[in-house]
Design a protein around this nucleic acid. Sequence first.
DNA 1: CTAATGACATTTG
DNA 2: ACAAATGCCATTA
Length: 103
Amino acid sequence: MKSFNEQVWELCRKIPKGRVATYKEIARTLDTKAYRSVGNALNKNPYAPEVPCHRVIKSNGKLGGFAHGIKKKEELLRKEKVFFVNGKLSRKILYFSFKNSSS
DNA sequence: CTAATGACATTTG
DNA sequence: ACAAATGCCATTA
């Protein structure tokens, strides 16, 4: 049984480029409501460049936070063709769904 | 085990 | 629509 954090990191790793997921969605995939802990896990994310934690944003469409600086997160997402307006996600961007990856 | 913290979410004002 | 307050869950001290 992996720790909650590891599960969060694995899910983030599944997020494709040009797509963004919400903390709530990740928590829901883990069958929990700990969106708080999800963000917490990403903050402690030891696999910073390995896991695209910058692709995880708030459910209300806002950026949320970032351990390396919220500004950096915005820049990274911009490179991924994910544009933000007034610190909010552009509506042209679709959220990513983890769905059932289990067999 | 108890208390405090946090990259959130939802409800009120 | 925005700002503040409250609730939530797991991690860490």
